[in-house]
Structure formats: C-alpha cells, structure tokens
Write a protein that binds this DNA or RNA. Structure first.
Length: 423
RNA sequence: GUGACCGUAGCUCAAGGGUAGAGCACCGGACUGUGGAUCCGGUGGUUGGGGGUUCAAAUCCCCUCGGUCACCCCA
C-alpha cells in the first residue's frame, strides 16, 4: 500500500499512458461537432437539486437513489450533475437563447451517479453529449443520430448497432400505457416482481425486461409504434426515412425505453455487443416537454449522451502513445549544460523533447530514448561542444550525422533519416 | 440495493498452517561516448486494511475497504 488513501469507489485515475487515448476520442468528437455546428457549452459541475428533481423527474431511478446531493454552507441543496441535459436546457432558458433560433450545443462533462460499480459503470463517468434545442422537425432527430454515427466512424469503432423507436407524446402516451395494461392484466401474476411494479408506474418498461418468463408473456403485446398518435407516427416515419436516405444503419426497435421522465417521441440508443451487461454506448431522445417542466416556454429539444469510458472499453488498448520528437543525450557530465540548453532551444522551436534528469550513463539515456519511442536522439559530448556540433541519430535506422549547432532544428524538422551514415 | 467470485512486488501470477517466490518491468554490469538481442547481478512486499484462532497465519474465522460478474439501472 503506497498510500493509505485510494481513489473513491467507482472512480478512476486516468494516467498519462492512457489519457492520450481519451484526448484522441475527445478531439474527434469536438471536430465532428464543429462540422455539424454544435458549439461547446460548459455548465457548472453542480446545480440546484431541484433542477434534476423537476427536469430528470421525480419518479426516476437517478433522482430517487443515485444523486450526490449536499447542502452547502449557505444551506442550499446542490447536486453533482447526474445527467447532462437539464443543465443545458436551464442555461438555454436562463440566457434567453430562444431568441436566437435553433441552438445546438455539445459538451464533454463528468457525470456523477451513486451506483454499484462494475466494468463500464462508474460513480463518476464522462459523457460526450449533444443537445439541439428549438427545432421540432424530424430532420434534427436524424442529424443528431447521423452526427454520432459519423463520430464512431471517425474514431474507428465498428460493430455498434443503432436502435430507434418512438414512445409517443404526452397526448398519446396515456393511450399507449392503457393498451399495454389491458394486454398484461390477465398475465399479471406471471410477470416478475419488478414488472408487476412497472405495470403501475410505467408499463412500457415491461417490454424491456429480460426475465425469460416476461419475454414470453409479452409475445403479441401491443407495439408502441402501433399505439402512438398519427402526428407522432408521422414524425417517427420521417426520421426513419431520413436515416435510410442518409445511409445511416439503424434498426427500428419498439422495445427501447429510456429511463428519464422527459423523453417523448423519438428515442434511440447505440449498443455494442462486446460490452456485456453495460452495453449501451449512447442513449438519447427527444424531450419536447423539458423546458416547460423547468418553468420555461414550450420548446422542442433532442440530444444524446455517450459514455466515454465505454467507448474506450470498446476501442481497446491497441497502439502506444506517440513518443517525443527528440531525446537529447549527454555523453558526459561536462556536456549536460550544453545538452539542456539544446533541449530548451528545440522545445521553443516546437519540438517535443525529452532528457535525462538523473545523471545516468549515456547507455541508460539511449535505452530511455528507445523506450520512449523517440524518433531522433541528439548526442552532445565534449567533442560536439568543442566543434560546435550535435550528433543526430535516427533511432529507427541507427544512422548518425554531425550537424552544426545552428542547423539542428531545421535538420530535425526535415525528418530523420534524410542523409547521414550507418554506424 | 441483492447475490456470487476475487484482492500476494509496478504488472501477470505461484506458495492452501512452519524462512513469501517466479516471469515481465525497473536499475546496474558484460559493452569505460551510443538503444532495441543475449547473459550475469541487484532494487522492490508489515500478502488491501482491522480484529480473532494458533507455539506459528498469505493460508482458517469475523468485520471492513476495493475490484469483477449477474440482477437492477444506464452512458
């Protein structure tokens, strides 16, 4: 035990040897969002607890048992963001952004939920998310799904499957729930305990249950898509048609149900088979009633959240972090001063440069250069200091050449291996 | 929140009541200004933490913390 303290349960340290992977995915996401016109929004890491109670919904698992809530010294009840959407809608309303037409945002933000950790499920995780507020039509639904699809293509993640459905609006949801209750009523005793509870609270969720008896019990159950109103149906059909036209692979899956109260109409998720039980890599949908629930005007909105840790899990651990451009090695203690001067000069010229800080032998410095994956080693010894030169070694080929001190930057930038002689 | 399995060196794992070990990694040498291969040597552990049983505990028992899997939930 190196320390008596450990990272809290369900959290993790991301060390430099892996954080470069995170940065790569984040950069790809930001670039896709730039192309689609989704500007970055940064909201506080904690919010008024009521924002989530009223936004995410009182009946939800998140609000009931997963929030990190605390009173601050002024007696305010605050909550660590358990979910990305309500803060964005809150900011949208707070800053009067409705007057600016459709607003599109993206964020990369830590999310906190008190859950039992397991692979792909953490108490602090990071979501890549997007929110488009103010646009009611099916085209924006398709755009958001397309954006994520392009993002997955960009980062080279293959094998993901996109499921989409519609759970109706506040006008037709009651009829849909009623139809489901009517269907399950005679079978109520056959359902699992959870589903018996869901029968009352949210019968849609019975369609989502994995208990074998329930899977059997729901054969022939009414499909959400057959019981939503004409407007909702037309909206969903249009979304599907657009996805098909855009060549975005997708499956219509009436069993997908989201766990948050505010979802309406289009819902979707992307799963990946390599992940086991926590296989949802992205989830989202339309939330046309959320702004109103937060005290604002009726405003349509749609967005998704995607778990960065899960994406990384799917991507695996191939490849290694890029090494420095140059490793500067001192052949003797007398040359260390000159070596360090060269290090700073090269860094100021824009190169990434490493050196030894522990006074080790040249051999050890070269081993380090190799381990780090440096492309070029720059050697300085007494000979070089006397001659005003630096010896550059191409680490891949072993070729070396002596270069006047003033030309080192230029020579390295020209790329290793362009000249020199074998050793 | 429920159930199950698991925590030994930086990493992957041995030792199942009697001196805590190996491989990899790391450091050094062979090679006194030159990396990747090979050989030799070395550093490194109050066996997750606490308590108990015992002459003796990594090993058996209890508690606790953490991880993993499933449920649940979700990203």
């Amino acid at each position: 035990m190196a320390s008596k303290y450990k990272a809290p349960r369900g959290t993790q340290d991301v060390l430099p040897e892996v954080s470069w992977r995170w940065q790569r995915v984040e950069a790809a996401f930001r670039d896709i969002c730039r192309r689609y016109g989704y500007g970055e929004i940064r909201t506080p890491i904690f919010e008024d607890t009521q924002l989530f109670v009223h936004g995410t919904g009182e009946g939800t698992e998140i609000v009931n048992k997963q929030m990190y809530s605390f009173d601050d010294r002024g007696g305010r009840s605050l909550t660590l963001r358990p979910e990305g959407t309500p803060p964005v809608v809150r900011a949208y309303l707070e800053h009067g952004l409705a007057s600016g037409g459709v607003q599109k945002f993206h964020y990369i933000a830590p999310i906190f939920r008190y859950e039992r950790p397991q692979a792909g499920r953490y108490r602090q995780h990071t979501q890549l998310g997007v929110e488009a507020i103010g646009a009611p039509g099916p085209d924006i639904d398709a755009e958001v799904i397309a954006l994520f699809h392009d993002f997955l293509t960009e980062i080279g993640l293959e094998g993901a499957v996109t499921h989409a459905s519609s759970i109706g609006c506040r006008n037709c949801r009651p009829a849909l729930s009623g139809a489901l209750r009517a269907f399950f009523k005679p079978k109520l005793d056959d359902l699992c305990d959870f589903c018996q509870a869901r029968y009352e609270t949210n019968p849609l969720r019975i369609l989502d249950c994995k208990v074998p008896a329930d899977v059997e019990a729901r054969v022939g159950a009414p499909s959400a898509l057959d019981h939503i109103c004409d407007e909702c149906r037309a909206h969903f059909d249009a979304v599907v048609a657009l996805l098909t036209e855009l060549d975005i692979p997708h499956e219509v899956d009436p069993t997908i149900v989201r766990g948050l109260d505010y979802y309406a109409r289009t819902t979707f998720e992307v799963v990946h088979p390599s992940l086991g039980a926590q296989d949802v890599v992205m989830g989202g949908g339309r939330y046309d009633g959320l702004a109103e629930a937060l005290g604002g005007p009726a405003t349509p909105g749609i967005g998704f959240g995607s778990g960065l840790e899960r994406l990384l899990l799917v991507l695996g651990e191939d490849g290694s972090s890029p090494g420095p451009d140059v490793y500067v090695a001192a052949a003797s203690d007398e040359a260390r001063g000159a070596a360090f001067t060269l290090v700073l000069e090269l860094r100021r010229a824009g190169l990434s440069v490493e050196v030894d800080y522990t006074g080790r032998a040249l051999r050890a410095q070269m081993r380090e250069a190799n381990r780090l994956g440096a492309r070029t080693a720059a050697l300085i010894g007494e000979d070089e200091v006397a001659a005003g030169t630096v010896t550059l070694r191409d680490m891949a080929t072993g070729e070396q050449e002596s270069v006047p001190a003033g030309q080192v930057v230029e020579r390295i930038k020209a790329g290793p291996g362009a000249g020199g002689s074998r050793t």
